[in-house]
Design a protein around this nucleic acid. Structure first.
Lengths: 138, 138
DNA sequence: TTTGATGCAAACGGTTTGCACTTAT
DNA sequence: ATAAGTGCAAACCGTTTGCATCAAA
């Protein structure tokens, strides 16, 4: 938390109360919130908070690599991950829940090892697993 | 082509000219077309073709596993893959091009091997790689 | 004749944009 | 005083839906 705030200051990013609230929400979030998740929660304390600010702040944080926007969507909505480093995700086909997967490929996995395929440079990899979560299996 | 048409008939799916055109387009497509890609092309021959039909046919084909809808989007648009079986994808951050990746994890990769993680059953896995394609690297 | 597919347009919903207002430097 | 951030509403755009028309079994 403090470290992230420091990094933001260092980059000359103005830390308004709204931005602080969003940063705080992301760091305390164990899940993968959507814009509405964040907006609904923060609006309780900051009644004038607008969605436009949530969108712009999430874009800002993504652009500088402090968070990431996932490729998968929760019922049509973009969702964001407070962990910017490489890890994978499980998505429940039934309830839409997203779960972190900390499994790693073995060191010799050609997919993770590849920095380039057919002349295309690879900067990032995300694996998405689809199925039914423990709650929805019944 | 013929095989797919046979499978569709076997399942009692009416093969209208519109559906045939879409199936044909998908099978001849080497890429990962969006609804508009398909619609724009087919409309040249079938001027009354509607997008609603393209949407409904792609949903139909996805539901029965003949094609798949990818998790990634091409500039905000859903894109579809004529290959329903497991393979991975590269997405160019600059031009949005999607490329098939036929690399496979080694047999002992815990990610591919896993059928279940923390009680969540895994039915499908897709890996997405992000970077710059050979054209956009310059 | 009854069922299902098509096509048009309107509705929907998440996201983006424009702009006036406010806040920080 | 100048630049940047906020908030509201409208616009945008991909997708879905409703419904009348049309074709097939």
């Amino acid at each position: 938390m403090k470290k992230m705030v420091e990094r933001l200051r260092k980059k000359g990013i103005t830390l308004t109360p709204q931005r602080m609230a969003i940063v705080e929400y992301m760091l305390n979030s164990m899940g993968h919130p959507t814009v509405d998740d964040i907006y609904d929660e923060i609006k309780k304390r900051y009644p004038t908070m607008s969605k436009a600010t949530v969108y712009s702040t999430l874009k800002l944080l993504s652009d500088i690599g402090e968070i990431q926007e996932l490729s998968i969507r929760k019922r049509g909505k973009a969702c964001f991950d407070p962990i910017p480093h490489l890890h994978h995700h499980f998505l429940c086909k039934n309830c839409g829940k997203v779960i972190n997967v900390e499994l790693n490929c073995p060191g010799d996995c050609p997919i993770l090892a590849a920095e380039e395929i057919d002349g295309n440079s690879i900067e990032e990899i995300q694996a998405y697993m689809y199925g039914l979560c423990s709650n929805c299996r019944d």
